[in-house]
C-alpha cells in the first residue's frame, strides 16, 4: 500500500531529532508537526517571524496579528519568540535551523529541486523557498512519487525552473524513502507492500538498490 499524505508526514517525523529547530513548508510538511516522537523537544520556525509555533488557536481566540507562513492563524508556545523578517532569514541563511521540510514538483538525482514555477501558468512566487533550500544543512522533500499524469517526479534532471541546486538530502514519497548520493537516488526504505520493481518503475532518475530494502515502520 502506497502511503497517504498523513503517513508521509508520519515517516518524516521519525527523522526529527531532540533539540532541533525545524521549518515546515505548506502542505504535507505542515502535518509533520502532528507526529513529533515522544520525548523529543522540537521548536518550529515560521519564516514570517515566529519561533515556538503552536497549534491552531481555540475557536474565538484567533488573533489577526499571529499567523504562520501560510497566513493561517496559529498560537505561540511558552518560551516562543517573535522577530522581523530579516532576523528570520538570518536564522535560515545562518544555518541555525537544523531541518527544512518542503514539497516539490520535481527533484533531480543531483539534489536539484523545482517547486515554484510552471512556465505558462500563473506564477505565484517562491516566497521563502529559495532562501530555505539554499541554506539549510538538512532538507527533506515530502511529495508524491509521481505527478497527476503518472510521470515520475524523481528525475535525472529537473525540467521545471529550479528553486535550488544540489540541496536536497532525503525524499519521502508515497512509495519510498530515498537519499541523494553521488550518482543518484539511493533507495533506503519502501512503503509496506510496495515492491522495489514498482519503485523502479516510478523513478526516472538513477535508482540505486543496494541489497535487501526494508519496509518502512510507521
Amino acid at each position: 500500500m502506497a502511503l497517504d499524505k498523513t503517513q508521509i508526514a508520519q515517516r518524516i517525523a521519525q527523522e526529527l531529532q531532540h533539540n532541533w529547530y525545524v521549518n515546515l513548508g505548506i502542505g504535507i510538511p505542515t502535518l509533520v508537526a502532528n507526529y513529533i516522537p515522544k520525548g523529543i523537544d522540537i521548536e518550529f520556525q515560521s519564516e514570517n517571524g515566529l519561533l515556538g509555533m503552536g497549534p491552531f488557536p481555540i475557536e474565538g481566540t484567533e488573533d489577526a496579528d499571529l499567523i504562520n507562513a501560510g497566513k493561517q492563524t496559529v498560537t505561540i508556545l511558552q518560551g516562543g519568540s517573535l522577530f522581523d523578517s530579516a532576523m528570520s532569514f538570518a536564522m535560515i541563511r545562518g544555518q541555525h535551523v537544523q531541518l527544512t521540510v518542503l514539497g516539490a514538483m520535481e527533484v533531480a538525482q543531483n539534489g536539484d529541486i523545482a517547486n515554484w514555477k510552471i512556465p505558462g501558468k500563473m506564477v505565484k512566487g517562491m516566497g521563502g523557498a529559495m532562501d530555505l533550500v539554499a541554506s539549510a544543512d538538512n532538507i527533506i522533500v515530502a511529495m508524491m512519487h509521481t505527478n497527476k499524469r503518472g510521470a515520475s517526479k524523481l528525475l535525472k534532471k529537473c525540467s521545471l525552473p529550479l528553486t535550488g541546486v544540489g540541496c536536497v538530502k532525503k525524499i519521502v514519497t508515497n512509495l519510498a524513502v530515498l537519499e541523494i548520493v553521488e550518482d543518484g537516488f539511493k533507495l533506503l526504505e519502501r512503503a509496506l507492500g510496495v515492491t522495489v520493481a514498482e519503485i523502479q518503475n516510478a523513478t526516472e532518475g538513477n535508482l540505486i538498490i543496494d541489497g535487501e530494502i526494508p519496509e518502512m515502520k510507521l
Binding site: S85, A86, F89, I92, D112, A134, G164
Partner: peptide, 26 residues
C-alpha cells in the same frame, strides 16, 4: 526570494549598497 527581499530592505536602511546571498543561485 523572501529573505533576499527582507535583506534588501534592511541593506537600504543600513547604508549597504549590495550583499551576497546564496538564495537563488543556479
Amino acid at each position: 526570494p523572501q529573505g533576499t527581499l527582507a535583506e534588501r530592505c534592511r541593506a537600504t536602511g543600513a547604508g549597504i549598497p549590495a550583499f551576497y546571498t546564496p538564495a537563488g543561485y543556479g
